[in-house]
Computed example of a mutant assay.
Amino acid sequence: MSTTDTITIEGFTAWLAAFRDRVTEHRSYLTELDSAIGDADHGANMARGMAAVMEKVGASPATTADELFKTVGMTLVTSVGGASGPLYGTLFLRLGMTAGAVAECDAAALSSALRAGLDGVVARGKAEAGDKTMFDAMAPALDAMDAAIASGASLAEATAAARDAAAAGRDATEPLVARKGRASYLGERSAGHLDPGATSTALLFDALAEVTAS
């Protein structure tokens, strides 16, 4: 495996920075989506949380994936309100625990770590496909990533496939009736809106694809 087909600690940090930039750029849009079916705070919460993450990461640079993502996860849990903090925090905590004390990951190791993160999100939020949550973007993304890896794709190709599947999963939440979270209180009125969590998840995979392509 060549170094160009792995993501290093520096790459992980660049991914987090790119995600922060995206949620900051789309802060108002994420909040607009959340105002329709939630608490109208998803954009503000994620922007604040990722700003805090990058401040912590910059102040004490990690040398291993587990160390880095423990910092990320704990920062999100303690700085982000609502469901986003615990869910994204769990995602990154499980990702780091599974990746382990390593300085880089190949595509298969990254996918496995992300899958563990998704399992953590499911365990915490009890979401399934079609519930209109971040699961609806993340699960298809990881399925596409795994399929790409199985076919011999490079890391960049696998993360590009994940990015595209996450975007499609996000778009597929629009007609759904929410079955989890605050949006579920609206019943049929939750249909016709993109899910904010699925939308920010698509930004997460978009950032990953950008970083691994460079």
Rank of each mutant, 00 (worst) to 15 (best):
A144G: 04
A113G: 14
M134G: 04
R170L: 06
P140I: 01
G187H: 05
I149L: 00
Y185P: 02
S154R: 07
D171T: 11
L114N: 09
T133M: 03
A113E: 13
A156N: 12
A168E: 11
G197F: 00
D195E: 01
A127I: 08
G192V: 06
S151D: 14
A168T: 11
A198I: 00
A139I: 03
G192E: 07
K126G: 05
A158K: 06
G130T: 12
T199F: 00
L155M: 12
A116M: 04
A113I: 13
L194Q: 06
K132E: 02
A168I: 14
A153W: 03
G130K: 14
L142H: 09
S151R: 15
E128I: 15
Y185G: 01
A162D: 10
T199R: 03
L186K: 04
D171G: 10
K132W: 02
P196H: 04
P140N: 01
F135N: 12
A165D: 06
M138Q: 14
Y185Q: 04
A147H: 08
A116L: 08
A153V: 05
D119Q: 09
K180F: 05
A141H: 13
D143L: 01
H193S: 15
E174L: 11
A162C: 11
R124K: 13
Y185S: 03
V177P: 14
R179T: 10
A165Q: 02
L194N: 10
L186A: 05
F135P: 05
P175C: 05
D119V: 06
T159D: 10
E157W: 08
E128W: 15
G130M: 14
S154C: 09
A178V: 05
R115W: 12
L176T: 14
A156K: 11
S200M: 01
L142G: 09
A113K: 10
A148N: 06
H193Y: 14
D136G: 02
D146I: 06
M134R: 05
G125D: 05
Y185M: 05
L186W: 02
E128N: 15
R163Y: 10
A116H: 08
G130L: 15
L118G: 09
I149R: 02
A147T: 11
